[in-house]
């Protein structure tokens, strides 16, 4: 009887523990932190690749703004909203860029932003050193493209860097970097383009490689 009771308790604990997981940053940082993307820290950019039989397209999007909020005592509760301007997407050919922004494809006029909204982090692990913490996690949230919202989970690697003489040369505050790679299927976002193009000249799936750079916002700037 007691043995069965212990097993039930143990299983219950194992089931609940991931929900209660609270991973600390492991650095001397206190209180809820607000990070704002800042190109002085580093160039926030999304690189995208489309692989299709007729051609491979490599492009970038660089008009990126966003804020992140997290509690250093509980990284799982990190939230973020990052917006990417569709009009900033480039592929190396002006005419192709115009097509990409047009109504047939991403419709930059009507859907001017691609939005990542992070609701929480899962599977968080941290390696903290003296002034730096490397975080690995899965960012759970929503991805909005072409006016369509999809739930998404993205494996991310993040770095928190405490302010130092070296970082001050670029910008004030602690630095925060997020790196993530993932794929999206165009049909999931109702992007069909010109007839016959998807699958021949444009890949059915697009690979995205994102690098976001930010710094902590002072209390005065948060207002």
């Amino acid at each position: 009887m007691l043995q069965r009771f212990m097993i039930v308790i143990a299983l219950g604990f194992l089931g609940v523990s991931p929900i209660l997981a609270e991973t600390p940053l492991g650095l001397a940082v206190e209180g809820v932190q607000k990070i704002r993307l800042n190109n002085k820290v580093g160039k926030s950019q999304i690189k995208f690749v489309s692989e299709a039989p007729m051609e491979n397209i490599h492009g970038t999007a660089s008009d990126i703004v966003g804020d992140l909020t997290f509690d250093p005592a509980n990284l799982e509760e990190m939230t973020a909203r990052i917006e990417v301007g569709v009009a900033s997407m480039e592929t190396g050919i002006k005419k192709r860029d115009e097509h990409l922004h047009s109504k047939d494809w991403l419709d930059a006029e009507q859907f001017s932003k691609i939005i990542f909204e992070v609701k929480e982090l899962k599977d968080v692990s941290v390696k903290a050193q003296e002034a730096k913490a490397d975080i690995k996690a899965t960012a759970m949230g929503q991805f909005t493209l072409h006016g369509i919202i999809k739930e998404i989970s993205i494996p991310v690697e993040m770095t928190y860097l405490l302010a130092s003489e070296k970082t001050k040369k670029r910008a004030s505050g602690d630095f925060f970097v997020i790196k993530g790679k993932f794929q999206i299927a165009l049909k999931d976002f109702d992007i069909s383009g010109n007839r016959g193009m998807v699958g021949s000249r444009v890949g059915t799936e697009i690979e995205l490689d994102a690098n976001f750079f930010g710094s902590t916002v002072s209390d005065a700037a948060k207002e």
């Binding site: 580093g42 160039k43 490599h58 970038t60 480039e90 190396g92 050919i93 002006k94 770095t159 070296k166 970082t167 670029r170 970097v177 790196k179 690098n211 750079f213």
Partner: peptide, 14 residues
């Protein structure tokens, strides 16, 4: 009409 040039960030290796 444009070509990519890769720039490496020394601080972060990105």
């Amino acid at each position: 009409d444009k070509q990519q040039v890769v720039v490496v960030d020394e601080m972060f290796g990105t």
